[in-house]
Amino acid sequence: MELAEIGIKFALVAIIFGISLVVAMYSTYAERKIAAFFQDRVGPNRAGPFGILQPLADGAKMFLKEEIIPTNATPFLFIVGPSLAILTACIASAVIPWGQNVVIAGKTIPLQVTDINVGILYIFGVVSLGVYGVMIGGWASNNKYSLLGAIRAASQNISYEISMGLSIIALLLVTGTLSLGEIAQQQHGWHWNVIYQPVGFILFLICAFAETNRTPFDLPECETELVGGYHTEYSSMKLGFYLFAEYINMFISSAVMVTLYWGSYNYPGMDFMNELLGTTWGPLFGFAVMFFKVLLFIFFFMWVRWTIPRFRYDQLMDLGWKVLIPLAIANIVVTAVVITFLK
């Protein structure tokens, strides 16, 4: 690899890293504003115009807060927990294709950090690791509420990963590849996978809610039962990391859903737009389209959170094992049969 290429990759990594952090930061702001909108409130409006600087103020507050490690906690693991959570959340974005190749000054730059041929497996692996952050943090706190939250998080994530994986298998039957870059390319124009895999998409969406611990699956941290769940004992930036990881995860799962099902950077009439805008601005416009879709999904996550109650633990398990998994298996069978007969 040439030095210039490495430089470009580094720049891309930095940009995507920066974007996901900024999006996560402003998701907290958006969540509060959207909640306020749903609940006839005003929301944050003190820091800057319309409270636009609120995330920065929150960040500064988090850094300046006193760092408390409970006496009976395990100090090393207590710190490892949030670090793992934020680490796994941040590295998942590496394989997501953000757009077609951009040509800048005669150089072709792919808008994807790396197009490994097992992209989906990579995302699954990294997301599964995310639960370790929650488990370790909850266990190391030496608090019963944290422990209950951690146990809930672990069993919930494991259960829902199964149906998530099964829903993806049906998609793989359609696409025939594990590489996210290729999956994105296949959905050229309006050939979005959601048209071929509507049930699979809904299954994936529900599982994504469960994986990101968002309402109605926010049992690991439901404040009315478990005080703060796994992060009851956390304060300062360690708490910030947990909250941040949740928002980054939400961003990543939105991006994954857009990539897998909602056409990634593709949109109807993209050939015409690419000709019109050229090889530099065309793909960048595609990137904007993808970003817009991702933001819509983030909005959807928040919309659901402020609309419906949460499940009880056993109902959550029932839904996961007795409804979603059979549905996902049926989806695989139906997809396989249809593909066989159409070929």
Binding site: Q39, D40, R41, T215, T224, P309
Partner: peptide
């Protein structure tokens, strides 16, 4: 009761 089941929005409506 709504809040305790996880739905905060009904609460803010009714408080008005």
């Amino acid at each position: 009761l709504g809040v305790d089941t996880g739905a905060l929005t009904g609460f803010t409506y009714m408080m008005q």
